[in-house]
Write a protein that binds this DNA or RNA. Structure first.
Lengths: 203, 203, 203, 203
DNA sequence: AATGAATGAGTCTTCATTCAT
DNA sequence: CATGAATGAAGACTCATTCAT
């Protein structure tokens, strides 16, 4: 036994884990944390209960993993949007719009981020807060980077307002019947405008 | 038996119901919807399981009642703030600040409104949304009442952004350790400014 | 106070008790012993829980009273049928038919007698058996009264068979959709024939 | 892992299920559907509540399973009795006697079939009716197969009468104290005679 | 006599997690 | 490594009955 695990096995494990995670994410998004049971996840992903517990210590763990994976996707999306715009205001607008649109196109993930991760255990609550904090942090940096354009007295507060505004705007849009709502792009734009006006406005 | 129900009894029932509601509200705020069990509520409020079910059809029912009572308190608070200010901008600022401060002073109620009422059953979700919708509606009215001052293209979107911004700002404040955070009044003011700038800003 | 209770009060009490009994009978027939709750009976009959317990020691008690009242109605019906026929065979036929028809026309009462009074507490079971025994007893008497016509070796067994046959035949009829079933009179007649043939047949 | 489920495991599950079913059947027969609680069944069969619910969706389910297993045993018993007799009348007599004797020897099962399955939920009621209908159907076939011998105008009615007669006769016998009652074989014979006379008798 | 609020034991059921195979 | 049967604590809810008013 010259090595602990064959590459093949290693890759398999990764693929398996990814499958667990995707299935769990989907179910959490569709039914919520409590309603998505472990047996349910097992039934959908294949495999066995025991196997599930080899990849995650417990149910909370998968949820945390799902939440963090989600956080990274969002970060990546927003960073890219920012990178494509030299002007700080355009960059911020693009970041907000991309956040909105990413969630609008991934409603299950949006649900996890916005509603299903609330009111759970303290630990989960904390993970959710830390994901949000990461995003807020980026906004704070941007605001601080150009005080002339963004005259916010307390960038941390502004950043939170911005995140809250986007989430609530997006969630309302998601809850509205498809036939009655405006196009996502339109609402994304208006939401971005709202926050741009807020952070650039002279007071 | 000169009358159907003695005032005494009637009053007692009301008092009893109020006690149930307050106890339940407190526990929901402290531990969340799922973690606050009926036996727990019974133990804290005194009385018996059966008695609890005489006042509420089921657990969801108390939660709905708590949520709606809360909604009305918030409405009243904000209406009063608005009534005390003739100028629309001041009125809006006052309303936002009063919302923030009301929740900051009633953290358990804030938790219920912001986090604990998310991700529950569809019915509960819907009640939460309808309470929020009521507040958003007021904001929309104000925005519409003076288009010169509030040039929002889509007041409904703006209203949602505002509600979301306040909630997120407030919730972050609540989660921050007391020693590290700014005074509530300060954050309330800054949050109000954020949103005032957003709705009055020319774009 | 020359007398314990005024006639007026006495009459009232009787009327009240009768109302309780009728309401309870109806509900037992419609929903079964367990599903018909005391609060339900109170709600339908008017009055209060406490009042209910002034007329009956407990829920079992009303059921017993209902069952016995029913037993007497059935006895009366059958006795009358018998009395109208001099010939023993005709008398028996008439008795069976009248039993069938009485139950067919009072389906709720039939349910109580045939199905809802089964599988309950030992005491209730025993009451049911004693009501049935009373009917069987009459049949036994008739069979014994004319051994030449009714050559049954064991009249007690024959009587039970007869009762069982009528109940099952009737209950099947009741459960059959109205559009698909034969007229009650026809089935009553056939059922009577079955039993007459059974008790008169030479073997 | 050369095969999906080892015969050993498979066999174990079957044995376990059988044990649950037998224990439940016994308790239902002894105490009735309502009085036989799930915890009781668990205590008697060994195992845990959760395990019970792995084999049956709910309490109703075990009862249905018990009722249907019983129905099949009865069917098998009667079919065998019929098969052993070429002559239609003898076959019918044998079938009735075997039904009576099977139940007389399995009093708990008899209770389930005759009394404990009445007056329960609509679903349970329906299962009971369908089991009875199956038996009645067989009788109808036999009656129809030889109209010269069995001149019944409505075989369906006759079949129901027969089933009812046997059940009631049997149940009365079961309820009678052992010291006071006739031998089961005797009552079975007399009951069979009753019904044979009924279906062969010229009217 | 009448009321009806209060009681609380007891029911069914769920599901995260473990561990023998 | 994988399996999936077993666990059992815990939850929501019901309803016959009592008793202070």
């Amino acid at each position: 036994m010259p090595y602990r695990s064959t590459p093949k096995t290693e890759a398999r494990k990764d693929a398996r884990r990814k499958l667990w995670l995707e299935t769990a994410t989907r179910l959490f998004g569709e039914r919520g944390y409590h309603a998505a049971t472990v047996p349910m996840i097992v039934a959908e992903a294949g495999g066995s209960t025991g196997s599930f517990y080899m990849y995650f210590r417990n149910k909370e763990d998968v949820f945390v993993a799902a939440l963090e994976a989600l956080g990274e996707q969002i970060t990546a999306t927003m960073d890219q949007a920012r990178a494509e715009n030299a002007d700080p205001v355009s960059a911020m607008r693009a970041a907000v719009e991309s956040l909105f649109l990413f969630l609008a196109r991934n409603p299950r993930e949006a649900r996890i981020m916005i509603v299903e991760s609330s009111g759970l255990s303290p630990r989960l609550e904390q993970v959710r807060r830390s994901v949000l904090a990461r995003h807020a942090e980026r906004v704070v940096e941007t605001l601080r980077s150009d005080p002339a354009t963004f005259p916010a007295a307390y960038p941390e507060v502004a950043a939170r307002c911005m995140v809250g505004a986007v989430f609530e705007s997006l969630y309302t849009w998601l809850e509205t019947a498809e036939r009655e709502r405006l196009p996502a792009e339109e609402v994304a734009r208006v939401t971005a405008e709202y926050n741009i006006a807020a952070v650039t406005g002279r007071r």
